[in-house]
Design a protein around this nucleic acid. Structure first.
Length: 713
DNA sequence: AGCACGCCGACT
DNA sequence: GTCGGCGTGCTC
């Protein structure tokens, strides 16, 4: 009755034990020559009499020191496995802390005894652990209302109404709140009211990125340490992850904060799920079971409420730029829409300044007016932030004599020029080589960088601002933050702290600086080259660009007092060659609803999600032909399958980056107006895919995977 | 996924 | 003649 952590083996395996085991019990079982962690699953109608001798081996150990995973959790795991077309064992066992796999039952029992003792001796032990991880983040000053031990600020009327409507909601709620409108305070209050009113209740708070957990943790710890706050994300050590998981599973932690993996945390008394920045693509897993933690949050809340009132477990999705899926659900009343258009403290939203690059001096990096504005701000003690979505010095090196380009030898992509260590690096496979002295094609010495990355922007900015001075008369200081500059552990926190202290005047970086961080002195945000998102082949690109720009804009002017005392103009500058693009018309007005309406109309006309349902099958092989053959052969074989008549199967095509690490990749898009039809077809089709593998045309196929509700096509 | 079994190239 | 490459197949 256990499932192995292996994806090819679909249904549960059968084992025997000398006494009945409750479903959800963790066990240790033999499989082949190995000993594995297993999970007891329900086995309706199975009796020992029906078993051939030797058909079932014996359970080795029972982890009876911890309670079984409950029915709601098992329901979530089996739904996720079914919906995302993976085996139950893979989903269920991947959702457990990895260290559990290596532990013997007695070791776990001993650990639990120790934890119980520690918890009895010091009820705050749990909280301490978390705080250590979070202490590098500067704390937000809270305006404490006198006599209120809960130490929350007064809610604005708008917040109070949103919270009240959420508390009365009988369906998932979408909190559409401008950046700086105080969404986090709503989360905190919702959690507080729930945990005060129900002494057992647990809440799950999800954030898109690991970088954002420390500061959220700090805010939750500050108010709710007494209730036990733990985090769950991939940055924890294996031991921490097990501890935190156990704390949640045993109900010692009543608040769990985490990234997408936290959706599978065992929370026996789960009553509230918050998904912050619900539109963020990080919620969609890109490997293993390709689940959407946001979608599973909605499912899980419903499943937890099964057989109880619909509001037993509530779910709150928050965003300043909701996904079009959630937006539409709110429009048609499937979700409750809560709106908070005002910034707390009345801070003005940044004014959009579109820079028409057609009218700028030739070859200019930053418009002169933008440079000047940055310099003026630095002179007044204000900070600026520049976004450029490309790390490295230049995306490619090229020889103008023979046309040679710095291509990665293993991928169909350029190797990026990193000037700092004079390397060419492929961002897809990790290949790295020294920059050649002369062109490998023709020996020409004149090989030059083409295009611009953050390293180069930083360098040019320092040059362009050489004449300018800070308030203290010193030269302007530029900080670059991207995956390269923050590789060392703790260096992101350290550099962010420097930015907060005002050590730097200008911050240059990739996406990672646009999200969440609370910079107090930034009054200008600029997107150096936004056009990539305007005409990308991916139909979701405009949506992502809009979200990125608004989110980045939200970094500016967060401290209304600072802005007022400076008399600062809070601005978002966007450099573009296409200023007339309709996306910008909506952006000028900060009008997400208008943008969403326009995008949804396009989607409806083209019958794209959320007006249709998609799945993507990707194949990897030694040759492109084999990868495509597998998909096309399986498609042919799938003709008679259930649901097929409601589907469109497009021909297999090479992926955008066709070859990565010497593996050829192809994909096939499947579209349907019926989710059940798509589900039924995919479930049956797996077998055809498996069979197609043994055809001679598909020789050299390495693997294939189905991505249900893919984000990028 | 692991781990075994099984059939073809360069070494003591 | 063996060590070892990774292709194919199985695990209650």
């Amino acid at each position: 009755m256990t499932t192995p952590a292996y994806s090819g083996l679909g249904p549960a395996l059968t084992y025997v034990h000398d006494r009945p085991l409750e479903p959800g019990t963790l066990v240790r079982v033999p499989l082949g020559k190995r000993e594995l962690l297993g999970l007891v699953w329900e086995a309706p109608g199975l009796s020992l009499e029906g078993l051939e001798p030797g058909q079932a081996r014996a359970v080795l150990q029972v982890f009876d020191a911890i309670p079984p995973l409950n029915a709601a959790w098992r329901g979530l795991a089996s739904f996720a496995a079914r919906y995302y077309q993976r085996s139950l064992g893979e989903v269920a066992l991947a959702a457990l802390p990895p260290q559990l796999r290596d532990l013997q039952a007695e070791q776990l029992a001993r650990k639990l005894k120790r934890l119980a003792k520690a918890a009895a001796g010091n009820p705050k032990t749990q909280g301490r652990q978390v705080n250590q991880a979070a202490d590098s983040e500067p704390q937000m000053p809270e305006s404490l209302s006198v006599g209120d031990t809960k130490a929350g600020p007064e809610l604005s009327p708008e917040q109070a109404i949103a919270l009240q409507r959420f508390q009365a909601a009988d369906r998932p709620a979408l909190l559409f709140g401008t950046t700086g409108s105080g969404k986090t305070e709503i989360y905190l209050r919702a959690v507080q009211e729930l945990l005060e009113q129900d002494p057992q209740a647990q809440a799950l708070i999800m954030v898109p990125e690991i970088n954002l957990t420390p500061q959220l943790e700090a805010r939750f710890m500050e108010r709710f340490a007494r209730w036990g706050v733990v985090s769950l994300h991939s940055g924890l050590t294996p031991a921490q992850r097990l501890d935190h998981w156990l704390a949640a599973h045993q109900g010692r932690a009543r608040i769990v904060l985490g990234t997408r993996m936290a959706i599978f945390a065992s929370l026996p008394q789960l009553r509230l799920i918050v998904v912050d920045e619900e539109h963020d693509p990080s919620y969609k897993s890109q490997e293993g079971a390709r689940y959407s933690a946001r979608d599973l949050a909605v499912y899980r809340a419903k499943r937890e409420s099964q057989g109880r009132s619909p509001a037993h477990c509530r779910v709150l999705l928050g965003s300043a730029t909701p996904s079009l899926e959630s937006w539409r659900a709110a429009e048609i009343g499937r979700y409750l829409k809560l709106e908070m258009p005002q910034r707390i403290g009345g801070g003005a939203l940044p004014r959009l300044r579109l820079v028409n690059m057609n009218h700028q001096p030739k070859q200019c990096v930053l418009a002169p007016a933008l440079l000047e504005s940055i310099a003026e701000r630095a002179a007044r003690g204000e900070q600026s932030m520049l976004l450029l979505n490309r790390r490295g010095y230049a995306p490619v090196l090229a020889c103008h004599a023979c046309g040679w380009k710095s291509d990665c030898p293993h991928c169909s992509a350029h190797a990026v020029f990193h000037k700092i260590d004079r390397t060419l690096r492929c961002h897809h496979c990790g290949y790295s080589s020294r920059v050649p002295y002369a062109c490998p094609g023709c020996g020409n010495l004149d090989i030059a960088p083409v295009g611009r990355g953050t390293e180069q922007l930083e360098e040019q900015l320092v040059g362009l601002l050489a004449h300018a001075r800070r308030a203290d008369g010193e030269p302007i200081r530029v900080l670059r933050l991207d995956a390269d500059s923050t590789r060392a552990k703790g260096s992101l926190e350290q550099q962010l702290a420097g930015m907060h202290e005002g050590e730097f005047d200008v911050l240059v970086g990739t996406q990672m600086i646009a999200k969440g961080h609370d910079f107090r002195r930034i009054t200008l945000v600029a997107s150096v080259n936004a056009d990539g998102g305007l005409f990308a082949s991916d139909y979701r690109a405009p949506e992502r660009l809009f979200a990125l720009l608004l989110q980045a804009a939200g970094r500016a002017g967060r401290d209304a007092d600072f802005v007022a005392s400076q008399g600062a103009a809070v601005e978002l500058w966007v450099q573009t060659w296409y200023p007339e693009h309709p996306l910008f018309a909506a952006l000028v007005q900060h009008d997400y609803p208008a943008f969403a309406t326009q995008q949804l109309e396009e989607r409806e006309a083209a019958l794209m999600p959320p007006y249709s349902f998609q799945a993507l099958v990707r194949a990897e092989a030694r040759t492109q032909e084999a990868a495509q053959a597998l998909l096309n052969l399986a498609a042919q074989a799938g003709e008679p399958l259930p649901g097929r008549e409601h589907l469109t199967l497009y021909p297999a095509v090479p992926m955008a980056i066709q070859r990565v690490a010497n593996v050829e990749r192809a994909q096939m898009l499947i579209e349907s107006d019926s989710r059940p039809a798509l589900q039924a077809f995919l479930a049956a089709w797996q077998e055809q895919l498996q069979l197609a593998r043994s055809q001679p045309e598909a020789k050299g196929v390495l693997r294939w995977a189905i991505d249900v509700d893919p984000l990028a096509i």
